[in-house]
Simulated assay, not measured.
Amino acid sequence: MKLTGKTIDRFLAKPDPQVMAVLVYGVDAGLVRERANQLVRQAAGSLDDPFRVAALSGKILREDPARLADEAMAMSLTGGRRAVRIEDADDDVAPILKSYLAGAASGPATDSLIVLEAEELPARSALRKLCEGADQAAALPCYRDEGAGLSGLIREKLQQEGLAIAPEALSYLAARLGGDRAVTVSELEKLALYMGGTGKTVALADVEAAVGDSAAHALDDLVYALSDRDTAGVERGLARSLGEGTAPISLLRAAARHFLRLQWALGKADQGGIEGAMRSLRPPVFFKYEDRFKGAARRWSPAGIATALERLLATEQLCKRSGSPAETLCRRVFLEIASLKPGR
């Protein structure tokens, strides 16, 4: 079963009882975790009940494929439905899950729910194709919050705290949040705590005071220094972001998002100029960075942007697969990109 759009919300609110396995995947790790938590709670009533929740990983299943069936077919000693959570699932898990689903269809009845968590999977992924095509499984993608969806999420979370938000403050937040749902929610909770009560309107000054020194702000400074080709600024930005505990892969993805936005704006500039293209970006470029964005659009050629994106993607893959320190790889590629000659 392939879930999209509004069917995702309906499924999360009331999962199909015929579905035995749900693949939750996507680039937004925070949203993947949030939705997986929701599914596990609905099935088992808790995230950490040792009798009703089993935690596995792709690595465990590769070493012992039978663990999936053992855990899914086990009965809870305290009664109730069980959930089997599989973190870091990948295509190696696909044949194991396929075998389990085939056996479960003709074997003893079980109502255990298998929840698989994975990073972004391409359409050709064996695990994704299995869960999209099987009647007993579902594939639930998790895209980054952006545009109107991100603005709506910000308003919703603040309304739950009894707060309204001014337009310029909303624009500021939308330009900084959305890359990871967990980070977004954490920053909004911090902002609500800073406001100190209900019935207030969040102003730009409030957001700058509560969120201005956040990791998201540090990322903005870093990626703009990168597209400015400011090597000293890149060094400072890396030191700050890594010092605050931001994962190297998060830095690589933030830089890739920035260059993708530049690439999109350059592609649209022929129709209405760079300023018109910038107005169409979602989320929009925050006003304090507009001049730097325009400068980067003039400074970078399509070929140069493509080179930067290729190097960022290759480095992310290296960080995941090699034994080299991720921070070292991240620092190296950022300085390489900042040193690229115009037009390269």
Rank of each mutant, 00 (worst) to 15 (best):
R279M: 03
S301C: 05
A265Q: 06
F293N: 02
M278C: 14
D291C: 01
K268M: 14
P284K: 09
L262K: 06
G276I: 11
A296I: 07
K294R: 12
L266C: 09
K288I: 02
R279T: 09
A269R: 06
K268V: 09
D270F: 06
F286K: 04
G295T: 07
K268Q: 15
L266M: 11
A297I: 06
R298K: 13
Q271P: 01
I274L: 15
K294W: 01
P284T: 08
F286Q: 09
E275H: 08
Y289N: 08
A296N: 09
K288C: 02
L266R: 11
A277N: 05
A269I: 12
G272T: 03
D291E: 11
G276W: 08
F293W: 03
K288R: 10
S280L: 14
L262S: 04
D291K: 11
V285G: 03
A269G: 05
K294Q: 13
I274V: 15
E290F: 04
P284A: 13
D270K: 14
R292G: 14
I274C: 09
P284C: 07
L260F: 07
L262D: 11
R282P: 00
I274S: 13
R298V: 03
R299I: 03
D291M: 03
V285R: 06
W300I: 05
P283T: 11
G276Q: 07
A296D: 12
G272I: 01
Q271R: 15
F286M: 10
F286P: 00
G272D: 13
Y289R: 09
G295Y: 02
E275Y: 03
F287C: 02
L266I: 08
S280D: 08
F287H: 06
R298G: 12
S301H: 05
G273S: 04
A269S: 15
M278H: 05
E275F: 04
A265D: 02
A269M: 13
E290Q: 12
I274Y: 00
R279L: 05
Q271F: 09
S280N: 11
A265E: 09
R299G: 08
K294M: 06
S280H: 09
R279H: 06
A277S: 07
P284R: 13
F286A: 07
F287T: 00
I274N: 00
W264D: 07
R298A: 14
G272C: 10
Y289H: 05
R292Q: 12
I274K: 05
A277E: 10
Q263R: 08
L262Y: 08
K288L: 02
R282A: 12
S280K: 13
A265L: 14
K294F: 02
W264S: 08
F286I: 05
K268C: 00
P283F: 06
I274H: 01
R279D: 11
A265V: 15
Q263H: 11
G295S: 14
A269K: 08
R279N: 04
F286H: 09
Q263K: 11
I274A: 15
A296R: 10
D291F: 00
G273H: 06
S280Y: 03
G267F: 12
A269Q: 13
I274G: 06
R282I: 00
D291T: 04
A297R: 04
M278Y: 01
F293D: 02
G276R: 13
K268L: 14
E290W: 01
G273W: 13
P284V: 12
D270E: 14
Q263P: 00
R299M: 05
G276N: 11
L281Q: 02
K288Q: 03
F286W: 12
K294T: 04
D291G: 01
P283I: 09
Q271G: 02
